[in-house]
Design a protein around this nucleic acid. Structure first.
Length: 593
DNA sequence: ATAGGGTTAG
């Protein structure tokens, strides 16, 4: 190996005029070669060369550490650093420290980061060595328990630069504290630090995650003014911001104007459309493929979610096939999306199959499976899964409590559900939000414990919103409690006067009591509030086509045989002795919906 | 000759 590089070195003209190699020149050339080996992914060759080098100076050691890190071999990088410190010949310099800190970040080891920090203090390589200070901030911000240590380092930096600010902002954003991140972004501008593409893209991401369209637009204007429109990460984050703020047509406009696009650009737009127009998301994917891009895990996750939203089982299965072909089926997020898709398409067994074949799971995996079970009426299974999850050492969050509570509600496991509600507050100190209260009201209400549900609302530490009152209203309607029902409906309407369902329900309560005048008055109020009831729409997939239909749908090319299919469950229900309860039907409006 | 922060997935 060493012969190789000497041969190579001899053929390469040196910048220096010296005609022969001294040791120093050879070492420099060896380090050069070391670097280019890593850049080509030739890790083995780099290691052999390093092992054969007679003199290894601090630069060579540092090149090894950053080379391994470049190739994502973080543990190897760390081992080189340990060997270097042990050998005591070449003490690490600021370059070494910042390189090895990046390796610590790759290992997600704040412990190793702390050791390096201690060594850096001992060798007086902190405060004033901006690369070291910024790298320290970065490891504490990304891997620390909180932002505290990162802040301590930040405040001790006398001359902060854009990188210091950006690292701090990114730390808060990635931890989900985007408003703090944006505060710091403002502070940065006030202190006179100039924004650059890096700081802009993280600030825009923060805007996107809290839906701050206003600030997002301001930053977009600044981007145009300063000519950063050609920077891909910047434009991708702006695209994402418009998507998350619900400005899809604008997002598409800027997408079309982009001269250069990468896979992330396409993925961002597909994910944006998936949330509100899943069919369009699938069309954009087809365009993406004809543009020569191949899908990755991110693309597939959005496509699977789109199929889930559309309840398009066949399409979802085809996408699943594509995932398999590319060997992407081990991806955690993708598996989570598949669990959800199969459950939403009515195929709970395939959902469970994906779940059970996963080699590692996160909170989302468990939650998706529980939501699936709950929606299919498998309350007991959801409850068992929840207990198993807690036993396996995963700490539940509000979303998974929501999943298990809603499963209990649908399966009529009232006391079980109430136990989880109390456990959430007492053992995990999670404060219930509107959604959780709504779920518990629903849980009590379905079981006929409507008075208890009302008392729960009265005991809430904040004002119940229209969805909580709506849950109570539903319970009142199911159990014919007209007095409390009227109260719930009025409360809900006071909070959201344009909720059609509430008017219809209230009107129906009056109608059921024979108070036709009041019932008609509600209808008029509803018209005045300018709202119209969306017809309840159902859909069915037959032979790779999704058909949607409403009650009383008569014309259409395919509706006749869809109706035929639909008669089957009706017949089964009749055979089982089911008698429809006619006074529960929502009274039709004049326009026939 | 060796070191930096940014974009997509519930």
């Amino acid at each position: 190996m060493i012969k190789n590089y000497l041969q190579w070195a001899e053929n390469k003209p040196t910048q220096k005029s010296s005609t022969h190699f001294n040791q120093k020149g050879a070492a420099i050339l060896a380090t050069d070669l070391l670097k280019s080996y890593f850049e080509k992914g030739l890790i083995r060759q780099a290691r052999n060369l390093f092992d054969e080098m007679p003199e290894r100076d601090v630069v060579a050691w540092t090149t090894m550490i950053s080379g391994y890190t470049y190739c994502s071999e973080y543990t190897h990088a760390w081992c080189v650093f340990v060997d270097m410190v042990k050998s005591e010949n070449e003490p690490p310099n600021a370059f070494t420290i910042s390189s090895v800190l990046k390796a610590c970040k790759g290992m997600k080891s704040v412990f190793c980061g702390g050791l390096v920090h201690a060594l850096a203090i001992k060798r007086r390589l902190v405060e004033g060595f901006i690369y070291v200070d910024n790298a320290l901030m970065d490891i504490y911000a990304t891997c620390g328990v909180s932002m505290r240590d990162a802040c301590v380092v930040f405040h001790d930096i006398k001359e902060k630069n854009v990188v210091s600010w950006t690292t701090l902002i990114a730390g808060y954003t990635h931890r989900g504290n985007s408003s703090r991140a944006l505060q710091i972004f403002r502070e940065m501008l006030l202190e006179g630090a100039e924004m650059n593409p890096h700081s802009i893209s993280i600030a825009v991401r923060a805007c996107a995650s809290i839906g701050s369209e206003n600030l997002g637009r301001q930053i977009h204007n600044a981007v145009i003014k300063q000519g950063f429109e050609s920077d891909l990460p910047v434009m991708n984050s702006i695209l994402d911001m418009y998507c998350r703020c619900g400005c899809l047509s604008e997002a598409k406009k800027y997408f079309n104007e982009m001269s250069e696009k990468d896979l992330i650009t396409w993925n961002t737009l597909i994910a944006g459309y998936e949330r509100s127009d899943s069919i369009e998301a699938l069309f954009i994917f087809l365009q993406m493929e004809s543009d020569g891009f191949s899908p990755n895990c991110f693309t597939f996750t959005s496509l699977i979610a789109a199929c889930a939203n559309l309840a398009a089982l066949h399409c979802g299965q085809q996408v699943h096939g594509g995932i398999f072909c590319r060997g992407l089926n081990g991806n955690l997020e993708l598996s989570n999306a598949l669990i959800d898709m199969y459950a939403k398409c009515g195929n709970i067994f395939d959902s469970h199959k994906i779940y059970s074949e996963m080699s590692c799971r996160n909170l989302v995996s468990w939650t998706s499976m529980m939501i699936g079970y709950g929606a299919h009426g498998y309350g007991k299974e959801a409850v068992e899964l929840f207990d198993e999850m807690v036993r396996s050492g995963i700490r539940p969050d509000r979303v998974v409590f929501m999943a298990v509570l809603s499963a209990c509600s649908h399966a009529g496991l009232v006391d079980q559900g109430l136990r989880y509600f109390n456990c959430m507050m007492d053992d995990y100190h999670i404060k219930p939000n509107q959604e959780i209260y709504g779920c518990v009201v629903d849980l009590l209400g379905r079981a006929g414990r409507v008075e208890e549900a009302y008392q729960l609302i009265r005991s809430m530490p904040f004002m119940a919103d229209e969805s909580v009152w709506g849950a109570l209203l539903g319970a009142c309607k199911a159990h014919n409690l007209s007095k409390l029902g009227k109260l719930a409906a009025k409360k809900a309407l006071a909070l959201r006067p344009n909720m059609v369902e509430t008017y219809v329900m209230l009107s129906n309560i009056y109608a059921a009591e024979g108070e036709w005048g009041e019932a008609a008055r509600m209808r008029k109020m509803m018209k005045r509030a300018g709202c119209k009831k969306e017809a309840g729409r159902s859909w069915i997939e037959v032979q790779n086509q999704v058909y949607s239909f409403v009650v009383g749908n008569k014309k259409g090319s395919h509706i006749e045989w869809v109706n035929e299919v639909l008669e089957l469950p009706g017949r089964h229900m009749k055979e089982a002795g089911y008698v429809p309860e006619l006074d529960c039907l929502i009274h039709d409006q004049e326009d026939g919906t």
